[in-house]
Nucleic acid binder design. Structure first.
Lengths: 338, 338
DNA sequence: AAAAACAGCGGCAACGTTATCGGTAAATCA
DNA sequence: TGATTTACCGATAACGTTGCCGCTGTTTTT
């Protein structure tokens, strides 16, 4: 049997004041004498008072809950972003509710529909890779529930977005390969249609163009984000008539997959073939040869996303901001070519 | 401005029935005619009705929120456990609220105290490594909020616990090293005081005893769970007067750290020195040589923990269960000794 | 010295549900 | 046929807060 915590009324009774006064004393100092406020606070501590969030939420039309919708949490990037989000949310008195879509648009829609989103004050979203136009999220915003996108955004939806600098990161990664003497550079990309994928692809293309290098369509392969996808993509590249001498992968997991596949094929990564990834997953420094990559500020992305969301919640007419955080090239062994 | 969702009263008005009838129709079919129930359901769909969880929670003294307290989420094991928990919770209409302690007992206490735990129906906990006796959690249980421990448990607290078979896993891992010809086997352990650490240590010791191998105190090093700790521990082992020829690490991250440290020292892992880990983190098959390890059923642990918690919530007098899930030895290159 | 402003507090309605208790009409029983 | 059960539904009081209005005294203004 659940023993109930002391309520605001218990404090009021013990102190012979009205419970309205207690309520005021507990939040704003406004309209309440300092002296009685102290009394209330002391009594609250004594009785181990805990505010009932349900009642508070009901009265205020808010829940102090934030939803986080994302494809999964079992990788370095996402789990780090969540940690950043959690940091900010916790310090502002908000709770985090997790919705894992398993990277399926269907489950994503399902979750939005089924869950009692009426009791969410806002939503942080990284869309699934086969997501639609984001109309579901637009509807939420129209209903007055603010949404902030991070990493993978729904372009059409007019709200705040936080991403790493995909274009310049990809540009820098590709140029780095060029500068290290690689000439036939392939790109194993993410799923087509994702803004994310397009931006990194464009960075890759522009870097090639700048240095007058060939852009072959067969050296660009779209597929999923997993390590297995990376393996398959690399294997496919090695069946091309003209094999590349370097690979820029859309993320580290795919880069790792590619390296493993090349190893199986007897190719020496870092000498014959250069590989550069994107993320700076810890595995990048563990794998051998270690993986050159673009470091993403995952923790920062989480923090900033959450801060923006809190702004949207506070001011109903907060102007959407699009934040782009710079990445950083981390040179390791996989792109050395000595 | 937040547009409000349709409420139970809106449905009632539209249908000219009392809102009490609508309420009944929406949950149990009891005491309401099939025909009117259909009407209500149809109207609810038409008006895009969403139950207000705050009101529901207030009336029922529950929140449909489960808390998950754990050291961190940025590693394979924890993020996988959470995914398992989420799976079960979502299918049962519960939300997950995350509390990340950063492996600090202080922050752990802080979170329990500060957060409005009155609005949690239950708690899933993996204690921080310097946690105290768990009295804080015992207090919660006494207050009527069920708690289930997973992975790292507070022994003194009488409630359900779900863990992998730490003892047998460690025994098997150590015996595997013996059978592959290693004789001087060290153990880099977790923080002292954790049940977890003790059980794996005991498995290690008993395996050595069974095979009549020496048990040296200087070959047992306690420290944290991170890769860096693993590096330090291995470096320390290599300063012993008598160096070991194998290492059993309490988890894969430490095993990886140890392998990296040994590599720096010019030691060939898998030939001169055997290494076995615990977890089956994906990195185990990426690192070279690949890492022999005990696979833990992380996803299962999450699912079962959550199911047990839901049982505790349903029946106030549910008998605590202690579930121990078997691990599985995965043999890879790091223990080969060819 | 009267008027106005203000500080401090109590009363009450509201938030959207669930739960309990009746009440009416139909169905069943004796 | 009268009594009793049953099916169905409405009214109303909670649940623990917040927010609004208004009432007292006291202080400031004119």
């Amino acid at each position: 049997m659940r023993k109930h915590y002391a309520t605001i009324k218990d404090i009021a009774n013990a102190l012979n004041v009205s419970f309205a006064t207690v309520s005021r004393a507990l939040r704003d100092a406004h309209d309440v004498k300092a002296e009685t406020r102290e009394l209330v606070l002391a009594k609250a501590a004594e009785l181990n008072y805990r505010p009932n969030l349900n009642a508070k939420g009901l009265a205020q039309h808010r829940s102090y809950n934030l939803g986080v919708v994302l494809p999964g949490i079992t990788n370095y990037y996402f789990s780090t972003v969540i940690t950043g989000i959690q940091e900010v949310a916790y310090n502002s008195g908000y709770n985090l509710i997790l919705y894992v879509t398993n990277d399926s648009a269907e489950r994503e829609r399902d979750m939005i529909r089924n869950l009692a989103l009426s009791s969410l004050d806002g939503l942080l979203v990284c869309v699934s890779s086969d997501s639609d136009d984001g109309s579901g999220f637009q509807a939420m915003i129209d209903d007055g529930v603010p949404v902030v996108f991070f990493d993978r955004v729904a372009e059409q939806v007019n709200t705040s977005k936080v991403v790493q600098d995909d274009y310049n990161g990809a540009f820098e990664a590709t140029e780095h390969l060029v500068q290290n003497g690689y000439r036939k550079i392939a790109h194993i990309a993410g799923p087509e249609g994702l803004t994310f994928t397009r931006n990194r692809l464009k960075g890759y293309k522009d870097a090639l163009k700048k240095h007058g290098l060939p852009l072959k369509q067969e050296w660009i392969i779209y597929s999923g984000f997993s390590q297995e996808h990376g393996e398959q993509d690399a294997a496919m590249l090695w069946q091309c008539r003209s094999r590349p001498d370097a690979i820029f992968a859309v993320n580290d997991r795919k880069a790792v997959g590619a390296m493993l596949a090349l190893k199986k094929l007897g190719v020496q990564v870092g000498r014959q073939v250069g590989v550069v990834g994107f993320t700076n997953d810890p595995v990048a420094s563990i794998i051998s040869p270690s993986l050159t990559t673009i470091a993403e500020p995952a923790f920062e992305i989480g923090k900033i996303s959450c801060q923006l969301l809190l702004n949207h919640i506070k001011k109903k007419r907060f102007d959407p901001k699009e934040v782009v955080l710079p990445g950083k090239l981390i040179v390791r062994e996989s792109s050395l070519k000595v």
